[in-house]
């Protein structure tokens, strides 16, 4: 659902940076905690890109697993699911280090 709005933003950002050049590939980083469904985002991207310089571009979507640092013991844990919990001491008070990303990293274009 929110994939459509995200796709719209991605196409807008790519269009601004492309400045009229044809875009062939858009590299996007998406943290696991963003709850983005890749197939829905790819579908939305193709749809929204139609009729823009981004049309036909490939969406290279890299998902970033969640990583948290325990505020109690300082140990970092991979966080495959909920609850987000420290693997060392079992604490729940974690600072999210990775997994909340949502940004356009780069574009490939034809010069």
């Amino acid at each position: 659902m929110h994939e459509m709005a995200i796709a719209e933003s991605v196409v807008r950002i790519a269009g601004q940076h492309a400045n009229g050049r044809r875009v062939t590939k858009v590299y996007l980083k998406v943290g696991h905690l963003r709850q983005v469904v890749p197939s829905a985002l790819t579908f939305g991207f193709e749809l929204v890109a139609q009729g823009t310089p981004i049309e036909g571009a490939e969406l290279a979507l890299e998902q970033i697993p969640a990583l948290g640092r325990c505020r109690a013991c300082g140990v970092e844990s991979r966080l495959p699911g909920f609850p987000l919990q420290c693997r060392e001491c079992g604490g729940f008070d974690l600072e999210i280090v990775e997994g909340e990303e949502l940004y356009v990293e780069s574009l490939e274009m034809e010069e």
């Binding site: 995200i6 950002i13 790519a14 940004y103 780069s106 274009m109």
Partner: peptide
């Protein structure tokens, strides 16, 4: 045509 890569780093 030459492919060029441009860094963007812009939050969606």
């Amino acid at each position: 045509r030459t492919a060029v890569k441009q860094i963007v780093m812009e939050g969606v």
